[in-house]
């Protein structure tokens, strides 16, 4: 079991909306943290692409070796992340 999966909800919450570098199984992923699933410890990262679209990456909690914070993010990024997938039509 990795250190990441042993963290608690309050610790995972700390990373939300931050820009991070995740190392998992010797691979590196970068992006803004949308959430961490408290059941699987899977991390969801969002990347804003140049053409205005975005890509979403989920990294399996059990493969996570390290999570490093790169930036805090401004209110606009936070705003975009908050509203992503939450458009109340379900």
């Amino acid at each position: 079991m990795s250190e990441w999966t042993k963290k608690g909800p309050l610790e995972w919450q700390e990373y939300t909306y931050k820009e991070v570098r995740v190392t998992a199984c010797e691979k590196e992923f970068r992006g803004w943290v949308l959430t961490t699933d408290p059941v699987s410890a899977n991390i969801v990262l969002v990347n804003f692409l140049d053409d205005g679209s975005l890509s979403v990456t989920g990294i399996m909690g059990q493969t996570v070796q390290s999570v490093e914070t790169l930036g805090e993010g401004d209110w606009r990024t936070r705003e975009r992340l908050t509203h992503l997938f939450s458009s109340g039509h379900c």
Partner: peptide, 13 residues
């Protein structure tokens, strides 16, 4: 509460 909100956002994704 935090657990629930993290989980909800994950399920939505």
């Amino acid at each position: 509460q935090v657990r629930a909100s993290l989980r909800e956002r994950y399920l939505r994704s």
